[in-house]
Design a protein around this nucleic acid. Structure first.
Lengths: 262, 262
DNA sequence: GAACCTCAAG
DNA sequence: CTTGAGGTTC
């Protein structure tokens, strides 16, 4: 028996919106401590990772760990039927073949109930070890989204250069080339202003990444004020958006092989 | 001689916009008391019905009753040439072959004149008797539009259940199933709040309807804050949008034959 | 999937 | 009145 309640359907809508372009179907692992999802994208280049802690829900119950295979597009269709400030409840019995999803308007005048068909999904589970990253960039998620959008009009790939001075995003294309430098700003208070950028670095590092994936990652910007970009030589880049009081959504992206012939 | 003036072209634009997807050509019956239109849709399942009273116009003159056959798509093209707050005038002589349409901007700086070719349309007139409906639902037209849009992503048909407790809209599809319940809210004042739903009922009744028609009906939502849905066993469902101080637009839709084999 | 348009909120 | 978000259309 699983039952979880969120006071704001908009949160769940944004989460699924951020993942569904990357992943068609995914397993949601429900346990006593919360919900986890891990899924490779269709081309097996990007890994999406979601963790929602039980204490982030207004109600949470999971008697027995259970994995629910869900088509994210179908899920998204149903979530679109919720108003942003509806309360949302998901419920499944043990060995259920459907997930019961219900929305209730703030005024209680409207109650919507949906049943989403569950599916068995073969998992290609990947172990993601915790790494000591060489560089960690923390920046406004909105600015990140903006930079990705801007550079996409120039080329297909972006090079992210992290140095002590800051982080540089550069792209090349037929029309020309461009680069955006965000200067590192040492934080005086514990928390930086929403817009400022910090770079924590042990060694300068740069990676070239396909912008189309970053555009998908940027869909998570509405979930968090800030994004952290974690880089280490010869390993996937990790993008993390913290969902306040609840968990985080992470994306891992393998760097592009630099092809000098192109 | 016919002459009618509306201070806001937007009203006429919305009216034609709401009907033109259902009906290609229609007869506009001009009489001393106002304008009436009645037309079956192409597949003869939905009936559109429009009544605009003479006193809703800022000027209205109709010396002799006259029927003007109009291609709604052509009419719509011309209306798109009007700004929303242009004044619009339509004018026709007896036995005219064209309808003269003119727009005047609020500032009087711009005057546009168009001539729309009239046509002879064979009418398949249908008598629509006034019925004593078993259930009348009154709800926000915007919420109606939203529910229709939401359920369309799930399936092709909607079942409307009216009971004393409220009205339920349900749909089934490949992704799963869904239903939305709007609770009846007894009105304390004469007028309900814009969002609340009322169900006046003598007997519970339900009907299954093709969502694609309801999506067309929902185009009339900008014309009225509220829609009333009138249901009676074994007869078409009637959707009415009141155009304030002027008349109403109605749609009648025959229920789907419930096919148990599907 | 992108651009346009419309509607709602600040 | 200006801006942003959402829906619709191409």
């Amino acid at each position: 028996m699983i039952e979880a309640v969120l006071p704001q359907a908009s949160l769940l809508k944004k989460i699924i919106e951020a993942i569904k372009e990357l992943v068609d179907e995914a397993n949601f692992d429900f346990s006593e401590t919360g919900i986890r999802l891990q899924a490779m994208d269709k081309s097996h280049i990007a890994l999406s990772f979601l963790h929602l802690r039980n204490d982030g829900f207004s109600e949470y119950r999971c008697d027995r760990s259970q994995t629910l295979g869900i088509n994210l597009n179908s899920f998204s269709k149903i979530l679109k039927c919720a108003a942003n400030d509806d309360q949302v409840q998901v419920k499944a019995t043990d060995k259920a073949e459907t997930l019961a999803i219900s929305f209730e308007s703030a005024s209680k005048d409207r109650v919507s109930e949906f049943n989403l068909k569950l599916m068995d999904i073969d998992i290609d589970s990947v172990d993601v070890p915790d790494m000591d990253y060489q560089a960690t960039v923390s920046m406004s998620s909105q600015e990140f989204a903006r930079i990705v959008r801007d550079l996409m009009s120039l080329g297909d790939a972006v090079t992210i250069d992290a140095t002590k001075q800051g982080v540089r995003f550069s792209a090349n294309g037929d029309d020309g080339s461009g680069s955006i430098l965000l200067r590192h700003k040492k934080l005086i208070d514990d928390e930086g202003s929403a817009a400022s950028t910090t770079v924590d670095i042990t060694e300068p590092v740069n990676h070239s990444l396909a912008l189309k994936y970053l555009a998908n990652f940027a869909k998570a910007a509405p979930l968090a004020d800030r994004v952290t970009i974690n880089l280490i030589e010869d390993a996937p880049v990790m993008f993390e958006f913290k969902i306040s009081d609840m968990g985080q959504i992470r994306f891992y992206l393998a760097p592009q092989i630099e092809d000098d012939n192109e």
